[in-house]
Design a protein around this nucleic acid. Sequence first.
DNA 1: GACTCCGATCTTTTT
DNA 2: GATCGGAGTC
Length: 754
Amino acid sequence: MDFLSTLNEPQYEGVVNTEGPAMIIAGAGSGKTRVLTYRIAYLIKEKGVDPFNILSLTFTNKAAREMRERIEKVAGLNARNLWMGTFHSVFARILRAEADRLGYPSNFTIYDSDDSKSLIKTIVKEFGLDDKVYKPNVVLNRISGAKNRLVEWSEYINNPLYAADDAAAQKPEMGRIYKTYCQRCFKADAMDFDDLLLNTNILFRDHLDVLHKYQHRFKYVLVDEFQDTNVSQYLITKKLSAVSQNIAVVGDDAQSIYAFRGANIENILNFEKDFPDLKVIKLEQNYRSTKNIVEAANSLIAQNKGQLKKSVWTANNDGNRIELIKSISDNEEGRFVSSTIFEQKAQNNYENKDFAILYRTNSQSRAIEEALRKSGIPYKIYGGLSFYQRKEIKDLMGYLRFAINTNDEQSFRRIINLPKRGIGPTSVEKMVVAAFEHDIPLWEVLTNIDMFLPGRAANAVRDFVTLVKSFKIYVDSKDAFEAASHIAKASGLLKELYDDKTVEGLNRYENVQELLNAMKEFVETPEVEDKTLGAFLQDIALLTDADNEDPTDNDFVSLMTIHASKGLEFKNVFIVGLEEDLFPSQMMLSSRADLEEERRLFYVAITRAQDNLYFSYALSRYRFGRLINCEPSRFIEEVDPNYIFVNTRFGSREPKLGKSEQPPGFSSSFARNLMSNKKPVAKKPLQYHKPSVDFKPSDTSKLGEGMKVEHPKFGFGKVRKLDTEGANKKAIVIFEDFGEKTLLLAFAKLRIVE
DNA sequence: GACTCCGATCTTTTT
DNA sequence: GATCGGAGTC
């Protein structure tokens, strides 16, 4: 085993201790992936274990793919039979195989969080509740939290503790919503993300023969990113390895950043309890970063109270100190980042792909993006609105999903009136309710529509049913690409997009083509055995954007959230938007009061960097379309100042803003104050592009034809015509920048200029 | 009952 | 800067 010679002592231990339970605590940059891959390779080559008997669970599909490739390099091609993937994808596969045990068909649909949220929204509406109180996000989080602790709705409803909790939160109907939500999912032959784990637990709990089968099958279980697993996931792995005891978990408690999703650090403690003769191995040498970066990260994380004992160190060079940059605005911050990238590339021969810009929230990418575009630096944004979340893609997917599973309520709602066929929300609601009240599948209501819906709409539904039936024939007899192409055309979706000649319309059309291309590729891949549409949908249901592309593939700067950066490394890293309330996030602090998790997030960001690290904050920033003042993040002060070097390039002189970005009231003295004082002084938040005069609808009573007016959105214009007849008073205004608009006077916020 | 348009509202992170 | 919901119209 020549490859073993490259490992250090604890790494070696981590690889060869394959029998019995093991916990590998791996500090950032300590070669964790290496240990995992070598461990699997060692099992196959040295121990002669059949790859078929190894289950390796990772956090993202991408991590799984990378690991598989690396193992194949070391251990040869038979590694292909490994069971490797995310918890969700692996257990979705098992659930499909055993679906009948749970009363599900094996072609069940997987609801993504958008589907879940809209289902919750309809339920809240049907119950006649206020969706301001029962916000879909909040309700879903509550349900998700329960499921991840294996609390099913029946238990939830009967447990007075939960009822008391919900009553205290002014949401007494939560249990009822939970129950209905589950029933609706089941009826639609659908599982949400959490169901994939919960139902696996139920499957293993209620069907011991199935459990035994998989216990026998998976003789070796490996779990990556163990700190981010939730109770539901942990129990699955625990059950699977109860007989063989060959379970290895790898993780770093300092990098646990998914508690909001139910991740539970206590799993680590439970693991020690559940597997008492456990072998603990600590990887503490960091190979990734300079000494300055490692120590800075250590000094930060030392502030956290709850953590395992571990001391990360490195033999690498000191390297540069962390540069702290303050800027006046988020735009300037963007300019600074892009000019620094430019200089670094010129001076130190870095390529674009050596740079990453990390931020707390996706919405922060905009200002950075603009600056990079202006300086002609190629970049790529990860995350944000993912490809599969785009409307046009979801529309087509809705058709495809419905053709596979005609009980999928969410897809049904999406496509039933798209393109318009004269079936409005009232009719839709009638059909869905009918299915529920008569306890029959939705498809049965549709095929016997005369019994449930009178008149015109029924005809439209009949046509729709005929259309879907024809789609099903295609789905059954053709491959994914042919079936989807046909459906895209015959549904009229493609034509509608094609007819839209605006830039966005063109974009949408291309996106749909891209999806079809992906199917073509899928169908033409020789290793893919099942080329049906159903197989394709199963394949992509659990994909995320991050899985689609490899940042090392091409030469561009990477922009992403810190969460998305987990597991990656870059030579140069910018952490931008280091402002109080943004990072640490206001929301995180107020809702869960978990400063430590935010700090771990910062730790993750810092430890992505190999050579150079930059902290950056802006003293004013656009949020919610408004310019607000910001204070530097407390986290900056928590890093030992010995490792930080304050960049004075911009701080020493008064910043100049371009005219277009100077908000009213942004005087040079204000700017000076911002830069010199530690805390910016401003009596009121700055307003941007908001007219100084209040726009009131009552102003419009004095309106006359030919008058010059101002509108908060459209700017200046001239009234061409007033229509004061009848109940609907209208004004037709020709705006200088936006052309002719018809405004309803009851709502129009017009100000008379002269 | 369906459709259209304007204005209000909201943004934490993700499988 | 998108999406949602309400009001008004067809």
